[in-house]
Nucleic acid binder design. Structure first.
Length: 537
RNA sequence: GGCGCGUUGGUGUAACUGGUUAACACGCCGCCCUCUCAAGGCGGAGAGCACGGGUUCGAGUCCCGUACGCGCUACCA
């Protein structure tokens, strides 16, 4: 049933000694299961876990929870690795550097077997030969009888098997699982203190849950519950941070710890990220919401720092009010975590991200953009490098002391649409004076404005002098010199100076909304200004 | 069905162990600035704390019930 040389519990106990850490140091773990992409909620929780360890002088590690061989997705591990790096939630320990590995549950089967055998020997567990069909049948019977479903008490057929009956089935080659023999009594209640929610009280568990899955699989793996008890104990975790969906299982876990002779580990059940759906809220869903997949942020180019800042603020609102630098180094407190799931809002993330990109230095912005583009827009890399000077200039302009922060870039994939106008190769000149973008200004007027603008064009770096040209242009064609003047007597003018500005704007940028024209001209340079104006003149 | 968790303006939160007209940020609206859009400055609307009881001199804050949402009730995690 088990390997001849299967170690005893004492072996593992001494192999994984208590960690030598300063008092108060917190050891946390993040346990993603490789059944698909990494969930945003995972990054959220892992971030809190790592923060707790960091600020207490403790340890944070990642343990891959791959005990469900059937649902495993091959690419998961690779995606996890790159996502962990992107969001700075890499493990402090791994199979090479850590003393508490292996860090993948599928490689720890011997350890689980040790403890399963130990429970079996002490009659705290038993073999169950029920097939899936029999279990389904059992559930149906229980529903018909209107009693709680599950494998427990008198309904737990194999719990009451004699040793002869067990031997007989074993000899017949029947497959089996190892089940926990629950000593629970439904009428008794247990209570525990959750680090986030305080005291929680619940009835004892009576279910004989499965500890080790079916014997027809190799390696034979544990269920989450059993692995949690064994691993978190042996890996010397001292705060179990996990999603609130586990609260209901705490009675099972507490029983397991007791049966195994382990000390209880404090729990912190964190509320899941929610999504506003119409007027109601629901859990951020892998199936319905693209933003539930961390790949979304990476591929569209949100800076990790912005996403992490948002996530931190969701966990502890105190941090949301801080600057990026402050919040990045501030401790997250479990007691400050909300008990209701926070709404994850892309609009809010967008505004944080705009703020974040705007506050980046020129070099940081350039690096961030290039790093993203190398993976997701190689063509843009070429364009940026071909005109590195221009790229640098326009990133600088936005960040010069005294410059006005535009904050119109939330993620790098917006670069083309926001900054594309500055690159000759990305800009399509407007050729038709009757183009709808010119709005109510007549084609003839558009043409003469373009011509006159190009004719006397002075490429000065003095902002007022530069714009004076537009004023002169407006005056020459009968437009009001300021919007205010036009407002007072619209009948006296062909239009407002804003109409003239907009014509020039469209000629220079092709856009109806743009940064101020002076700046556009400065960035693209004299030649390009004339080239663009020339296409219509 | 059972068990558990939750519910403060549109959103996220705050309000020390119950004690003045429930605070802050974002969003929204308006004004100013202004060549457009942003940004920025100024001002404004918006919750009486899911609902109903109770305890108390006094309750988002304690107790009970109801509603609604969410989770668990798998050899998924």
């Amino acid at each position: 049933m088990f390997a001849e040389d299967l170690p005893k519990p004492e072996h593992w106990e001494s192999r994984y000694p208590m960690r030598n850490l300063p008092p108060g140091a917190i050891v946390t773990r993040f346990g993603p299961s490789p059944t698909g992409f990494l969930h945003t909620g995972g990054v959220y929780t892992a971030n809190v876990a790592k923060n707790l360890a960091r600020h207490s002088g403790g340890v944070y590690f990642v343990r891959i929870e791959d005990t469900d061989q059937a649902r495993e997705v091959a690419e998961s591990r690779a995606q996890f690795a790159s996502a962990f790096e992107f969001f700075s939630i890499q493990s402090d320990e791994d199979d090479e550097t850590g003393q508490y590995g292996p860090y993948e549950q599928s490689k720890r089967s011997l350890i689980y077997h040790t403890y399963a055998r130990d429970l079996l020997l002490r009659d705290q567990a038993y073999l169950c030969f029920c097939t899936r069909e029999e279990l389904t049948e059992l559930t149906e019977k229980q529903q018909a009888a209107k009693v709680g479903s599950g494998y427990y008490g008198e309904w737990a057929i194999c719990r009451h098997l004699s040793s002869d009956e067990v031997a007989q089935r074993l000899n017949a080659g029947k497959t089996y699982t190892v089940r926990f023999r629950s000593q629970g009594d439904e009428s008794r209640r247990i209570s525990f203190e959750d680090l986030i929610r305080g005291q929680i009280e619940m009835p004892e568990n009576i279910h004989d849950i499965v500890l080790l899955k079916s014997s027809d699989q190799d390696p034979r793996l544990p269920t989450y519950h059993f692995a949690h008890a064994v691993d978190d104990h042996l890996m010397r975790v001292n705060v179990v941070l996990r999603g609130e969906e586990w609260i209901s299982s705490v009675p099972v876990h507490l029983q397991l710890f007791k049966a195994l002779g382990f000390d209880q580990i404090p729990y912190a059940h964190i509320a899941p990220l929610m999504k506003m759906d119409g007027t109601s809220r629901r859990k951020l869903s892998k199936r319905k919401d693209s933003e539930a997949n961390v790949e979304y942020y990476i591929s569209s180019g949100y800076p990790a720092g912005a996403v992490l800042h948002y996530l931190r603020g969701l966990a502890n609102s105190r941090l949301a009010e801080m600057s990026f630098e402050e919040s990045a180094s501030a401790p997250i407190r479990l007691s400050d975590c909300g008990v209701a799931g926070p709404i994850f809002d892309l609009v809010k993330l967008g505004s944080i991200s705009r703020e974040f990109i705007a506050h980046l230095s020129v070099d940081e912005a350039f690096d961030g953009l290039m790093t993203w583009a190398q993976s997701y827009d190689p063509e843009l890399v070429e364009i940026l490098l071909a005109d590195k000077d221009l790229t640098h200039r326009l990133l600088t302009l936005e960040r010069e002391p005294g410059a006005i922060q535009r904050k119109d870039l939330a993620k790098w994939d917006e670069f083309r649409s926001v900054y594309g106008i500055y690159f000759a190769s990305l800009f399509t000149p407007v050729m038709d004076p009757a183009d709808p973008r010119f709005g109510k200004v007549e084609a003839e007027m558009v043409r003469s404005l373009a011509r006159d603008f190009a004719d006397g064009y002075q490429h000065t770096s003095d902002k007022d002098a530069w714009f004076e040209q537009i004023r002169a242009l407006a005056a020459k064609h009968g437009f009001a010199p300021t919007a205010g003047v036009y407002k007072k007597a619209p009948q006296d003018f062909a239009g407002s100076i804003s109409d003239v500005s907009n014509v020039i704007r469209i000629i220079l940028t092709g856009l109806t909304q743009s940064p101020e024209l002076f700046r556009v001209a400065q960035v693209i340079g004299r030649e390009e200004v004339l080239r663009r104006a020339g296409s219509l003149a």
